[in-house]
Amino acid sequence: MKKSILIGLALAFLFVGCAKDDDEVAEFNKPALYWYQQIGNSIASGNMDKADAYYISLKSEHMRSPLMQTAMMMLAVAHMDEEEYLLAGYYLDEYNKRFGGEKNREYIEYMKLKAAFLGIKDVYKDQKLIMDSINGAGTYLLRYPGSTYTPLVKTILVRLHMSQYLLNENIAALYERTGKPDAAKIYREKNKGSIVEMADITPPEKGVIGQVFD
Rank of each mutant, 00 (worst) to 15 (best):
Y124E: 06
Q69M: 12
I108W: 07
L160P: 04
I134N: 01
V153L: 09
L92F: 14
M73N: 10
R143M: 12
A76T: 05
S133T: 13
L166H: 10
M80N: 07
L67H: 03
L92C: 10
V123T: 05
I171V: 12
E169Q: 13
R177W: 07
Y140E: 00
V158M: 15
K114S: 10
D122C: 15
Y110W: 13
Q164L: 08
E109F: 06
L141Q: 02
Y144E: 13
M63W: 04
T155L: 12
P151S: 10
A116N: 02
G136Y: 00
E176M: 08
Y110A: 06
F99D: 14
P66Y: 14
G136P: 01
Y85N: 10
M80E: 15
L113Q: 06
R177M: 10
R105I: 15
Y90F: 10
R177C: 11
M72E: 10
Q69N: 04
G89V: 10
V153N: 07
V123K: 08
S147F: 09
R143T: 12
Q127D: 03
Y149P: 03
I130E: 00
S133M: 11
R177A: 13
L129C: 08
L142P: 11
P145T: 06
I120R: 00
V153A: 02
G89H: 04
T70I: 10
N170K: 01
R177Y: 09
L141M: 06
A78E: 05
Y175M: 09
M74R: 11
M68G: 04
L141F: 05
M80G: 07
D126K: 00
T148D: 02
L166R: 06
D81P: 03
K125T: 02
L129E: 12
T155F: 11
D132A: 08
Q164F: 08
A51H: 00
N170M: 06
E61H: 09
E82R: 10
N170A: 07
M80D: 06
E169H: 08
A88V: 01
Y95V: 07
G89D: 14
L86G: 15
P66N: 12
M48K: 09
Y54C: 14
I120V: 07
Y165V: 05
N135T: 02
F99C: 12
S65G: 06
K154E: 15
Y90W: 02
H79V: 00
I108T: 12
Y54R: 15
T139P: 15
A53M: 07
A71D: 02
V77P: 00
S163M: 13
M162T: 07
N104H: 03
K128M: 04
Y144H: 15
E83K: 05
L58I: 03
H62W: 06
S60G: 06
L118S: 12
Y110T: 03
V77C: 01
E102F: 15
L160D: 00
M48L: 12
N170H: 11
H79W: 05
M68R: 08
E106V: 04
T139D: 12
I108E: 12
G119Y: 13
A71H: 01
G119L: 12
K112T: 14
L118P: 14
K97V: 08
L86M: 14
F99L: 10
A88M: 07
P145K: 09
I120D: 03
L166I: 14
E84C: 06
K114G: 07
V158L: 13
Y165T: 00
K121C: 12
A172W: 11
A53R: 01
M72P: 04
P151A: 14
A137S: 08
S57V: 00
